[in-house]
């Protein structure tokens, strides 16, 4: 019954089982295929061959400009936002031990959108273009910062979720106030943009601004995955397993805040991806919260690129917002998945 001596001859074991590698490679492949497909769409008709050549710096210069500076950034933005939201959702669900948690429920997305909208409303964004994304990230960090303080104070996950709901409601109320008082239709449309979410006309510069926040968030989340598996047994047991629960909570809240804040900076508030993406992959990774993170990110990215393709193909007079499309696809899927959970082996 003596403890095995720690730290000796630890042979690096593969991070995931072979089935995980297959799953993640397939999802990544689907994502790449969808990004390529998204690059085929646009006002200038381009053949797949010309798009392919344009992507890799060959072919006509005009093709390269169109593909590399207009179409690819939009597709990549959709993918990055989906991946950040998918991983954040999976991580928050693991932390809160609740499949319905996501950045939206914590009020992170709402606060981030509110800050972005405020920057637009008071004209700060006109003076300095980078202000809008910076405001969004600042809002997300304020929300996560507040949540981390609350997390240290209260040990109850339920309380933390309720605090998030409160933040969300308050941010929503102020947003409604701004919409209500919007002086002219132009600013109203801008505010609506941030509430509904879109990746139209995103540039590589936008990506460069929001990308580091999303990347930092994802790094923190993936580094904290092990603790999420321990939390499957409940906080008391997880603490007994040797997990520093307070630090774990802080890491996930900060990581999810950065990733979700960056995604709002890039695309505004896009809902449901954070709930649906983890659900779609969970059963394939034996319901292990740690192993859910990567495929949730990969499928989240693929979902939003597919949704962005769909809104451009849809025969609507004005282009649908990505957030609207995500909700239209995500909400019914979510309901179906929720119902499936009632089956005996679900």
């Amino acid at each position: 019954m003596k403890a095995t001596a720690p730290g000796i001859s630890r042979i690096a074991a593969p991070i995931a089982a072979p089935q995980d590698a297959r799953l993640n490679l397939s999802l990544a492949g689907i994502g790449i295929a969808l990004i390529f497909a998204a690059c085929l769409l646009g006002s200038t008709p381009l053949s797949p061959v010309r798009v392919f050549a344009g992507l890799f710096g060959a072919g006509a210069e005009a093709d390269q400009v169109i593909v590399q500076t207009i179409r690819l950034p939009r597709a990549l933005a959709a993918y990055a936002v989906g991946a950040a939201l998918g991983a954040s959702g999976a991580a928050l669900q693991g932390l809160f031990r609740n499949p319905l948690a996501e950045p939206g429920i914590l009020g992170v997305s709402a606060t981030a959108s509110l800050f972005a909208a405020t920057a637009i409303y008071f004209g700060v964004a006109d003076a300095f273009a980078a202000m809008t994304p910076l405001a969004a990230v600042a809002g997300a960090l304020l929300a996560t910062g507040f949540l981390s303080l609350a997390a240290v104070r209260t040990r109850s996950v339920t309380t933390l979720i309720l605090v998030g709901v409160g933040i969300s409601a308050f941010a929503g109320a102020i947003m409604a106030l701004l919409l209500n008082l919007a002086p002219h239709p132009f600013s109203l449309a801008d505010l609506v943009n941030w509430s509904l979410g879109s990746v139209a006309n995103r540039s590589l510069d936008d990506m460069a601004l929001a990308g580091p926040f999303m990347a930092a968030g994802l790094v923190i989340l993936f580094a904290s995955g092990r603790g999420l598996s321990a939390l499957a047994l409940g906080e008391e047991a997880a603490r007994g397993l040797g997990l520093d629960v307070a630090r774990q909570r802080l890491a996930i809240v900060a990581g999810a805040g950065l990733a979700a804040g960056g995604s709002v900076a890039l695309a505004g508030a896009v809902g449901f991806v954070g709930i649906v993406a983890p659900h779609l992959v969970r059963a394939r990774v034996d319901h292990d919260p740690q192993r859910t993170l990567l495929p949730a990110a990969l499928i989240g990215g693929a979902i939003l690129v597919a949704a962005d393709i769909a809104i451009r193909l849809a025969p609507t007079a004005s282009e649908l917002r990505l957030g609207v499309a995500a909700a239209l696809i995500g909400a019914p899927a979510f309901v179906l998945i929720a119902l499936e959970r009632r089956s005996p082996d679900g």
Binding site: R10, I15, S229, A230, R291
Partner: peptide
């Protein structure tokens, strides 16, 4: 995987178990 969590304090996780 639940039993594997017993090895958490040794840096293991269900998907990453050293031979011991």
């Amino acid at each position: 995987d639940v039993v594997a969590l017993g090895r958490f304090a040794y840096g293991a996780s269900p998907s990453r178990l050293a031979p011991e």
